[in-house]
Simulated assay, not measured.
Amino acid sequence: MNQPTDILIIRHGQTAWNKLKRLQGHSDIPLNEEGRLQAVTLAEILRHEPLDAIFSSDLQRAYQTAYEIAKSHNLPVHTDKSLRERCYGICEGMLAEEIKKAYPKSYEAWYAADPDHFFPDGERKTESPRQFHYRALEAIRNVASRHCGERVAIITHFGVLETAYRAAQNIPLGTRCKMPVLNTSINRFRWRDGRLELLAWGEASHLEEARKPPVDYYKHF
């Protein structure tokens, strides 16, 4: 029997679109000033926590966050496209009210948690919640299987965290899944015997510290 893998799944720092509540998806939006400060503070909090590997979505908001943690652990960041957020097609960059006005049927399906609904395609082809769920869960499984008996960090997005939470809590697709997912919050899971277990959710005390920049903060950027 393989040893369990402990996994810290962490949402990226804040972006300008996060602040405005615009849907991001695969749109490659960088961290804003607050997000960069959150990433530096998060790295400091995790400095003394043993990590064997660091994985990240290839989108820059996740990579920029992961990079700060990797520097403090002298580890590389392994990027993985399968750890991206769900693709929302033409609705990326829009506010919820704009989606409601322009695509009312998609808006209704979105808030009804229809697992097989697709937003209209845009620059990129969209994914249904069901497709995304299995893609994200498989990405987590791949990381866990490569690091049996170790502790790893995955820096990713809201949707991937929702997938992990849903899987660990046995919440079926097609139902609303309500839980806070703050930028740079730390969420602890264990992969054991082919499934996720939730150990701790939403560690975010460091976000208060992020309001007080470290003395050498501006040396980072």
Rank of each mutant, 00 (worst) to 15 (best):
I29V: 13
Q38K: 09
Y67I: 03
R11A: 09
D58W: 02
K71D: 09
G13Q: 09
F55G: 05
N32D: 15
V40Q: 11
N32L: 12
L83F: 03
Q14F: 01
L31F: 02
D52N: 14
P50G: 12
A43V: 03
K19N: 14
H48Q: 11
A53F: 00
T65D: 12
P76D: 12
F55T: 02
V40T: 13
L37S: 12
H78R: 07
H26S: 10
L46A: 13
D28S: 10
P30I: 14
E49F: 08
S82K: 15
A66Y: 00
R61F: 03
K81M: 05
N74D: 06
A70K: 02
H26E: 03
I29H: 06
I10F: 01
Q14Y: 01
D28K: 11
K19L: 15
L23G: 02
A43L: 13
Q60H: 00
G35P: 01
P30G: 09
L83I: 07
N32A: 09
A43I: 02
R22H: 08
S57L: 04
I69R: 06
I54R: 04
I54P: 00
I10E: 05
A16E: 14
L75Q: 10
S57G: 03
T79Y: 11
R61S: 07
L31R: 13
T15D: 12
Q24K: 11
Q14I: 03
G13T: 06
G35L: 07
S57R: 04
L83D: 00
F55Q: 08
I10L: 10
D52C: 08
T65E: 10
G25T: 05
Q60D: 02
Q64L: 03
R61W: 01
L75D: 04
K21A: 14
A70D: 02
N74V: 05
L37N: 08
H73F: 08
H12V: 07
S27C: 10
S82I: 05
I10C: 04
T41D: 07
V40Y: 07
E33A: 13
T65M: 09
I45V: 11
S82L: 06
A62V: 08
Y63M: 09
T15K: 13
S27N: 06
W17P: 00
L37D: 08
A39Q: 12
D52F: 01
E33K: 13
G13H: 13
Y67L: 15
W17R: 15
T79F: 12
I54C: 06
E44N: 11
E49S: 10
T15L: 11
N74L: 10
K81P: 00
S57C: 04
A66T: 01
N74M: 04
P50E: 08
S82Y: 03
E33Q: 12
